[in-house]
Design a protein around this nucleic acid. Structure first.
Lengths: 175, 175
DNA sequence: CCTTGCATGTAACAGGTTACATGATTAT
DNA sequence: ATAATCATGTAACCTGTTACATGCAAGG
C-alpha cells in the first residue's frame, strides 16, 4: 500500500481536495498512479485521523463545498520516512499478455482486434504525455529546474509507451 | 481478477500442480504475472469446485504428494470465453515513480542509491529474459511456430526492460 | 430534457498480503 | 547444524472494486 503516500506526495506540493487528487490521477499522473475516488476519500479520512493531514472546508457559491487537505509537520515527517525506505520492485499482472500467451485457443481475428484496441489506447496516452512534455520544454530554466523530477517521471511514461508501441508493431507483424 | 484465468491458461498447455504454477510465475512468467502460493492454492480449489479443473493426487517416494490439476472441457470453454472478452488496459501503480516525484524532499544520495538498486534488479531480469530468448531462437522452425505467442510475450518483457534501463540512464544523468 | 462536471460519501464484496503451520529430503 | 527445496494449506488482515446515494449548475 502506498496510495496514502502517493496522496501525501501530491499534497506536499500544494494543498488540495480529494477531487483534485483524483483529477491528477486521471489526467497527468495516470501513467504511474491510479485510484478510484472512493479509495482516495477513505484514505484522506484516515490520514487526517492519524494527524498527517489538516482539513478545512471551503464553501463555494455555485459548486459543492470542498474539503481542502494540507500536510501537517508529522505528515511531512511520515512522508520523508517513507521516501527514504527502499521500494519493492513493481508487481506486474498483465491480462493482455495472458491472452496473447493463450491466443492459439481462439480465432486470430479476435486477437488482432484486441491488439488494435490497445494500440489506440497507448497511442492516445503517448500523445497526451507528449503534450505535457511540450509544456515543460517551453518553460524557462528556473521553472524547468523546479519540475525536474516530475519531468523525469513523465519521461518514464513516454519511453514506456514508445516501447509498448514498438512491441505492438512486432506483434502485429507476426499476427 | 484474472489470476484464475492465468492459471487456466497455463494448465491449458499442460497439467500441473500449484507448486508448478508458482514456479512459472517466479521464473519465466514473472515479468507479466505474479501471485503468491497461498492465492494460487486457493484459486485452484475454487476452480475445481466450479468444475473447471480435475484434480489427481500423485504420490511421490522421496518428496511430498502433488495435486496435479487438469483442465476440464467446461474449464476450456470458460477460458475461451474469457480470452474472447476484451481486456481492460493495465493499471499501473509505481511506487518508485512516486518517490522520484517527491524526491526533492529527501537527500539526493538516497534517491541515487534507490535507483541503482532498481537498475540491478532490471538488469538481472533482462539478462534472464535474454537467456530464455536464446533458447527459443535455437529451436527449429516447427518448434518455433509452436511457441510463437509465448515468445511474443517474452519480447514484451525484453523491450519493456530495455526501455526501463534506457530511462534509468536518463535519470542517472540528471541526478 | 438529458448529460456532464463538481463534490462527497457508505456498504458489500472481491482480491491480495502476511503470518503461521507442517514435515521430509538434500545440499553446504 | 543450518538452510534450501519440495509441497500444501488456514486465518487474519489490508487494499481495492462495484454498486448505490445525493444534489446543484451549466451546456447542448
Amino acid at each position: 500500500m502506498s496510495l496514502r503516500h502517493a496522496i501525501l506526495t501530491l499534497l506536499a506540493t500544494e494543498p488540495g481536495s480529494g477531487y483534485d487528487i483524483v483529477q491528477h490521477f486521471k489526467q497527468s499522473l495516470g501513467y504511474f498512479w491510479n485510484a478510484k475516488h472512493q479509495q482516495v476519500y477513505l484514505e484522506l479520512r484516515r490520514l487526517s485521523e492519524e494527524g498527517w493531514l489538516d482539513c478545512q472546508v471551503e464553501a463555494q457559491s455555485d459548486k459543492p463545498d470542498r474539503k481542502v487537505y494540507t500536510l501537517t509537520d508529522s505528515g511531512m515527517a511520515e512522508l520523508q520516512r517513507w521516501l527514504r525506505e527502499p521500494a519493492a520492485a513493481n508487481k506486474i499482472n498483465d491480462a493482455l499478455l495472458v491472452k496473447l500467451y493463450g491466443g492459439t485457443l481462439i480465432e486470430a481475428d479476435n486477437l488482432r482486434d484486441e491488439l488494435a484496441r490497445h494500440v489506440d489506447i497507448h497511442q492516445q496516452t503517448l500523445h497526451s504525455l507528449r503534450e505535457i512534455e511540450k509544456l515543460y520544454l517551453a518553460l524557462d530554466d528556473a521553472q524547468k529546474a523546479q519540475h525536474r523530477l516530475p519531468y523525469l517521471t513523465l519521461r518514464r511514461g513516454i519511453l514506456g509507451e514508445e516501447a509498448w508501441l514498438k512491441w505492438a508493431d512486432e506483434v502485429a507483424a507476426e499476427l
